[in-house]
Design a protein around this nucleic acid. Sequence first.
RNA 1: GCUCCCAUCGUCUAGUGGCCUAGGACGCGGCCCUCUCAAGGCUGAAACACGGGUUCGAGUCCCGUUGGGAGCGCCA
Length: 473
Amino acid sequence: MSLIRTRFAPSPTGFLHIGGARTALFNWALTRKQGGAFVLRVEDTDLERSTRESEEAVLDGLRWLGIDWDEGPLRQTDNADRHKAVVEQLLSEGKAYRCVCTKEELEARRDADIKAGGKGIYDGRCREAAHGADCGDHTVRLRVDAEASLRWDDLVFGPSGQDASEIGDGIIRRTDGTPLYHLAVVVDDIDMQISHVIRGADHHSNTPFQLALYRALGAEPPTFGHVPLIVAESGRKLSKRKDPVSIQQFKADGFLPDAMVNWLVRLGWSHGDQEIFSRDEIVEHFGLDHVGRAGAQADLQKLEWLSQHYIKEASADALYEAVNPFIDAVAGRNVDRDANLDRTLDLLRERSNTLVEMAEKARFVLCDDIEIDAGAAKKHLRPVALEPLEALIPSLEALDEWSEASLEPAFEATCKALDDLKLGKLAQPVRVCVTGTGASPGIYETLEVVGQTRTIARLRAGVDVIKARIAEG
RNA sequence: GCUCCCAUCGUCUAGUGGCCUAGGACGCGGCCCUCUCAAGGCUGAAACACGGGUUCGAGUCCCGUUGGGAGCGCCA
């Protein structure tokens, strides 16, 4: 299979969008599978919105996801001279012409045309006017041959396109002399010898005009593949305000990059019944032939499931690395890694959908002072629990070895001495005293990672809570 | 309005004319396990938008309807 050249061309608008991330991932996967180069090109021609900071944010997002590129980042503004030269060239070849129609005139004529049942495309008024460079304020339009067929075989949608008569002569240079997006992408893609343009389906209807540009420039168009959009629950385009779309946000919410990648790649693409894909497996199996044509709704619950899956699978080193910042945040200090912390994290793997959850659930180990949840206290720190707790404390104090193995007989002996008390009647109050909540890993494991000193102290504090409650009546 | 596109369980999807009384996964219900919460095991409910064709046979092909989306900018 011959080498391909692909590109991801984000506009640096502050953060990496999940739609863009998926487009990048598909480009990356295709390139890594077929062999070739994946190029990153920043479309920064919208100077109002483009900053180096937002460009960095986009690159960071890609790096975090593990999507690496072979060339770039190139910037579209760096090619500005080339874009201008191309417009001049088209002008001199008669493939483009100057148009002196003003915005207002254009708008009025389009409205009138639509009212009269027309399609509202440019009427070609300046097409044969042969305005020279001295015509004053003007735009430049591409002369689109009305007979031309602007069709292509899309890698995802199959036969696509329409006749030139449907699109009209589009503007390629503004009055202020700057080139438009369509001109810039086509020129850049030609210059960079991009062989496969994989992009969002929102560009599907833009493609015919771009095909006309390739034709005018005498260049062989690339192979196109349009990937359906990721849609919101409403079925509409994702909204930056209402929907979670920023990769940075997902990172901050404690999702593992492996989970993100797995989630994104399955949004629209499939490989039989397989759900879990490592990056290697994605590269091994990926292909545009199995990308669906309908828009895909972002399913956050599936992401959480994947996230937990990867948390469960992660190596101890990788897990610590990933959860470290979240743990520090909960502890309010730099937490050193030790065997007890690793043990704690292991206990929490199957109980955490995200790293944020994991860190929060580790609070009873990370912090010396814990707060007892009011609801849990009300339910479990009742007068009936006083005797069992008071009976347990001395036997725990007497333990020379503090481990699951030594804790279990101590609990059992206490229950037995209390007229065969059910373990739950003892374990739940203990759990609330020690963790502050009614849910935690197994009680022996929990106590083991909390440690003997802190366990005893928390049990005593719990006993005091119950006594206070009794005193209040 | 015009052009283009899309349509299988709530969601992501398998399915490329017979293997489909439609499979998997997330989520949801039930059961088991159990000191709580999970995890795990078993199990259940849940879809081919509708109407016409074509064909011996249609989720799969064609047409229409309905619904949805994108594009129609001197934005990218």
